[in-house]
């Protein structure tokens, strides 16, 4: 066990965990930030996506020992992010969610996309979200919501 000092959603947090503990489980079990979901545990579904140092990252794959001084932002921090707020509103407007399990990861990827590209094409959206799976098949509504959010950001 080792102590780690993290910055999560702008707040300093300290945890004492095994160095190999994935960030996902530090968030969920130690910090009780359960908006980030466990899907596959092998980086194949995207449900656990967070922003690590500004980069959309699969938190199930990153041991806490590799975080270093990179800031972590989770779905819980999105309501305070100007783009995150707009994306969440678009999600509500377009009634994107069915079961909802994958949607926090979807939103984290979309926010990363829109921070880099305010006018994404269908191809941009499909490529950037290629690693976020939705078993309910809400992809069409996701794309509509991304475009809606992009229009508000224009």
């Amino acid at each position: 066990m080792k102590a780690y000092h993290l910055v999560v959603n702008g707040e300093r947090k300290s945890v004492t965990v095994d160095p190999s503990t994935p960030v996902l489980w530090v968030l969920r079990e130690d910090l009780k930030l359960t908006g980030t979901k466990y899907g596959c545990g092998i980086g194949a579904c995207g449900a656990c996506t967070v922003h690590l140092g500004g980069l959309a990252t699969r938190s199930c794959l990153v041991p806490v020992s590799l975080v270093g001084d990179r800031k972590i932002v989770t779905i819980e921090g999105m309501s305070r992010d100007p783009i995150g707020r707009i994306v969440q509103d678009a999600w509500v407007d377009k009634d994107v969610v069915q079961c909802g399990y994958c949607q926090s990861g979807q939103i984290m990827s979309v926010v990363a996309l829109l921070k880099a590209n305010r006018k994404p094409t269908d191809t941009n959206i499909e490529e950037s979200l290629g690693g976020n799976l939705c078993r309910c098949g809400t992809y069409v509504r996701i794309r509509d919501a991304v475009k809606s959010a992009a229009e508000k950001l224009a």
């Binding site: 980086g43 794959l61 990363a112 490529e127 950037s128 690693g131």
Partner: peptide
């Protein structure tokens, strides 16, 4: 898998960069 794309700088595309999954050491 996952339709991973090369991207403009050979590091994937935004939100699906190589580093989205591949860290600095083997997992």
């Amino acid at each position: 898998f996952a339709n991973v794309i090369r991207g403009p700088q050979d590091k994937g595309v935004v939100a699906l960069n190589c580093a989205t999954c591949h860290q600095s050491q083997n997992a």
